[in-house]
Amino acid sequence: MLLQAALEPLPFAKPFRIAGHVFTEVPAVVVTLSDGTHTGRGEAAGVYYTGDDAPAMLAAIEAVRGAVEAGITREALRGALPPCGARNAIDCALWELEANRTGKPVWELAGLPAPGPLLTTFTLGADVPGAMAEAAIAYAQARALKLKLTGDLDIDIARVRAVRAARPDCWIGVDANQGFDIEELGPLIATLVDTRVALLEQPLKRGCEADLDGFHSPVPIAADESALDLSELPALAGRFDVVNIKLDKCGGLTEGLEIARQARALGLDVMVGNMVGSSLAMAPAYLLGQLCDIVDLDGPTFLAKDRTPGIHYADGLIHCGEDVWGRAAAGTERQSAFVGTS
């Protein structure tokens, strides 16, 4: 087995702002595995708030190169690396390699239903309220929107009201990215109820989960930064209503599928999200999305260029074929290729 790892930075079409951060590119790492006949690929962006950046991902990949090239299994990989972007890239490459060896698509190998189009949110970066309202209108096809907040309560309330006035037709969720304290949630949630917002994602800082003990919200609260991997699931029940699974956080599709199943057993709803990336990164998450209540897989829409073949968005839905990732046509060797996005 031959393992190749390459850094492929993905520039954003324009800067993207959330609470405490402005992003201009995705530091994507792509892993390709080849047995001489068949290949498998995986893309990861890492997790910026845990220090899982491109150098860390590349170093982690090198640390397990020998085991991977000797034929590591996906389950053994979970023991060889902690949850991280490197493990995600290798795990996804192993799934596609098996699909190409067996001639079966990944969804079938994973015991999933045949995938179909999914309603996805389209994300509005934090900006002044008027600009966010204009951006909401510009997402004409969107049926679901996710608003990034910054933790400035008055401005965030104005942002939510402006977007709802601009798009009375849409499902709306908000993502606070750890921007609030527990004392601020009362007035924020009152606004969310008044504006028919359906989800509040990660309002408090990671590590402050216990502050939600005994807190009752009429708006479902989702754990994102508070839910990195499978081991953190038990602490979420009773505090959160939804867990947001991201493959870079949990270390791949293998663990992501297990999180979805165990979250259900704990009474949690399930969401799939992304750290932004190309269609190669979204495709495995799209399969996980077949099990989810909420889907947030708009990552390629932020990029100056996406790969081709790529996923397709139409009428608020995400469509992804097996030619993007998951099974190549017999005898086909796919290379990374990029096309501009509008």
Rank of each mutant, 00 (worst) to 15 (best):
Arg167Tyr: 11
Leu145Pro: 02
Asp91Gly: 07
Pro117Cys: 03
Ala144Gly: 03
Trp95Ile: 12
Ile172Thr: 07
Val174Leu: 02
Asp127Phe: 05
Asp154Leu: 03
Trp171Glu: 05
Ala158Trp: 06
Leu109Phe: 07
Pro117Ser: 03
Ile172Asn: 05
Cys170Phe: 09
Thr150Leu: 00
Ala176Phe: 03
Glu98Cys: 08
Ala166Thr: 13
Met132Lys: 12
Pro115Leu: 03
Ile137Cys: 13
Asp156Cys: 00
Arg167Pro: 14
Tyr139Trp: 15
Ala158Tyr: 04
Lys104Ser: 13
Leu97Pro: 12
Gly116Asn: 06
Trp171Cys: 00
Thr102Gly: 13
Gly151Glu: 00
Thr120Pro: 04
Gly111Ser: 09
Ala165Met: 07
Lys104Pro: 06
Leu109Met: 08
Leu112Val: 08
Glu98His: 10
Val160Gly: 04
Ile90Asn: 06
Val174Lys: 02
Ala135Thr: 08
Pro105Thr: 09
Asn100Glu: 10
Glu96Val: 04
Phe122Lys: 13
Trp171Leu: 07
Leu147Ser: 04
Gly173Ala: 13
Ala126Glu: 07
Pro129Asn: 11
Asn100Phe: 09
Lys104Tyr: 13
Thr123Ser: 08
Leu112Arg: 15
Ala110Phe: 05
Asp175Phe: 07
Ala135Phe: 05
Ile172His: 12
Cys92His: 04
Arg161Phe: 01
Ala99Trp: 12
Leu97His: 09
